[in-house]
């Protein structure tokens, strides 16, 4: 097997809170190969954002801590890495784009300075060279009149434009992996499509791998090669995108796919959109068995006794279910 770019093994990221230990990520395995786009989906609170931030070690410790597992970046475990070593990987090799473009840029510096900061740190450019590169990056992400706008402050940009700036900043050092943490959730629907298109375009240009975190199944179907479905801090299903949509095995995945709104069907058949009943269980004291059992309509006695193992049902298609 080829060495994966990123190989997360049995990762556990826990948070100490007033009410007890929250096992936000509780034994996650996730592989991303070179130039591959992997979607990570699940409801809010399922641990996908914590997983993404764990990779860059952006978790506040305390209250968070790594309770176990490995994050292998090109074969090298990031968890024991010193801060200085980690900083050489951040943005240079793994970059991240966050959900909230409105608050992710520092309001007191120009966008040019904020992009230049990365370049000056990792490529040792002078301020002038770095600003020139920033202009190029802004042009690349289709910001009109980049020479002027490089000197503007974030509040002079719209949300969509700020997300373009964030992408320009993330890609400025040509990272090998881009983590996109719900990059379109906070944007208008029309802007969402533009940003996704831009990411595709950038991928074609730079050839980096993308870890796309989202709860929109539609976005996954359009952009990803492989999908990982998370539920309550665990991976419940993993499959190539065609396999997942063609033959979803886990009841939770099936529910997710059924909950995609389909304009055509809704208009013709007046079908009600299907929602998954119930909410995500508490991660403080997770139920002993399958964490989805309480909401699962196929649940049997065995489901509540032990966590089912991840088993391979066809090539590259894994599912954590007894069915």
């Amino acid at each position: 097997m080829v060495e994966a770019l990123l190989d997360i093994r049995d990762l556990k990221t826990w948070f100490a809170t007033e009410d007890g230990l929250v096992r936000a990520v509780d034994g996650v395995d996730l592989r991303i190969n070179r130039s591959e786009t992997v979607g990570v989906v699940g409801e809010s609170g399922c641990g996908k954002t914590v997983t993404a931030r764990s990779v860059l070690k952006l978790i506040d410790m305390p209250p968070g801590r790594f309770a176990g597992g490995q994050i292998l970046w090109q074969g090298r475990d990031l968890i024991p890495l010193q801060a200085a070593e980690m900083d050489k990987i951040r943005s240079k090799e793994i970059a991240i784009v966050f959900q909230e473009p409105m608050t992710s840029l520092n309001p007191v510096y120009t966008v040019g300075d904020q992009i230049a900061e990365v370049l000056r740190e990792h490529e040792k450019l002078t301020r002038r060279q770095a600003i020139e590169r920033a202009v190029e990056m802004l042009a690349l992400v289709n910001i009109p009149n980049p020479k002027m706008r490089v000197h503007d402050y974030p509040h002079q940009f719209s949300g969509g434009m700020r997300q373009r700036v964030m992408i320009a900043m993330a890609l400025s050092c040509r990272p090998k992996l881009l983590i996109a943490d719900e990059p379109t959730t906070a944007l208008d629907v029309t802007i969402q499509a533009q940003i996704l298109e831009l990411m595709q375009e950038m991928k074609e240009k730079f050839g980096m791998a993308i870890m796309l975190i989202t709860h929109a199944m539609g976005v996954v179907a359009e952009t990803c090669q492989r999908v990982v479905v998370m539920y309550a801090g665990k991976v419940v299903e993993e499959a190539p995108v065609e396999a997942l949509f063609g033959d979803p095995r886990h009841p939770y995945t099936q529910g997710l796919i059924r909950s995609i709104p389909r304009v055509d069907r809704a208009a013709v058949h007046k079908e009600r959109l299907e929602a998954i009943p119930g909410t995500v269980p508490s991660l403080l004291t997770p139920p002993p068995g399958c964490r989805f059992a309480q909401r699962c309509r196929f649940a049997k006695d065995v489901c509540t006794q032990a966590i089912p193992p991840l088993k391979e049902v066809s090539a590259g298609h894994f599912v954590r279910c007894v069915l």
Binding site: E18, S44, G45, G47, T49, R53, I59, L283, L284
Partner: peptide, 22 residues
């Protein structure tokens, strides 16, 4: 005083569920 509660990236749902239990 109160220790820092869950930071932004921590899941919101379990916290709410926990609060309801108190």
């Amino acid at each position: 005083s109160t220790p820092a509660s869950l930071s932004a990236e921590a899941p919101a749902v379990p916290a709410a569920a926990a609060a309801a239990k108190k």
